[in-house]
Amino acid sequence: MSTTEVRPAHAGAEPVRRRRPELPSAVLGLGGLVVFAALLELLPRTGIVSADYFPPFSEMVRALVEAAGTDRFWAATAETVQAWGIGLGIALVAGIGLGLLIGSVELLRRFTASTIEFLRPVPSVALIPLAVLLLGLGLQSTLLLVVYASFWQILIQVVYGVQDVDPVARETARSYHLGRWARVRYLIWPTALPYVMTGVRLGAAVALILAVTAGLVGIGTGLGAEIALAQSSNAVPLVYGLVIFTGLLGVVVNLVARALERRTLAWHSSVRADVGG
């Protein structure tokens, strides 16, 4: 469905990388890609797999480049990105708002815990019939799926993040008379931020998956719909080309999320370089 990588949830960003050992690993990574592309090229060309349903890599790329010259392609991309962006935005606002509330009120957290644990694992795609029934075909249905998928990722992270406030930091806030608002702004929110960023990264990835899926199953427009169309018109290289492109979108989303994480969490122990002991 997608090549977007979903990483396991953890509080911080990736560990600090050193400058020197990074080079060989980057070269290796690039080498791996080249070998993979060469394999995709050679398998159909040598006849190990049938070129009818598995065209050589160069043809996939050519189909993609050709498509990229059309307005239709970019309109579809815009639609997918729009559904992704709006859906993720709604999930962010709702997830962060409710997460802060639920996380800070012990009673509310215990009251909602089992409900959340029940609703969270429901796969968003299982809601497709319901979405169509409720909202018909179109952007609204797509958004329902996108929001549902990314909302839980964000909510869970925020709820955990809010509870991670250090007892000493909390007592410091109390003894210096930080008011409710000041505590949220200067203590709770920064404490939860690493979790929020993880939630954003996971949510952004899964939102893209659902934005494409909605098009594939015919309730939305965009790249998913284009893939479905290419498939039904037997344009096999284009199908692969579009799949590669959605994968690239996923990579971009992930890179942006990680850059954002590094920027906002410069102070966090997973990003910073400690001096003191």
């Binding site: 000493v168 930091a169 007592e171 200067y186 920064p190 966090h268 122990s269 910073r272």
Partner: peptide, 9 residues
Amino acid sequence: EYGRSLYPW
């Protein structure tokens, strides 16, 4: 615990 009492952000 100064490390926890000061806010690292």
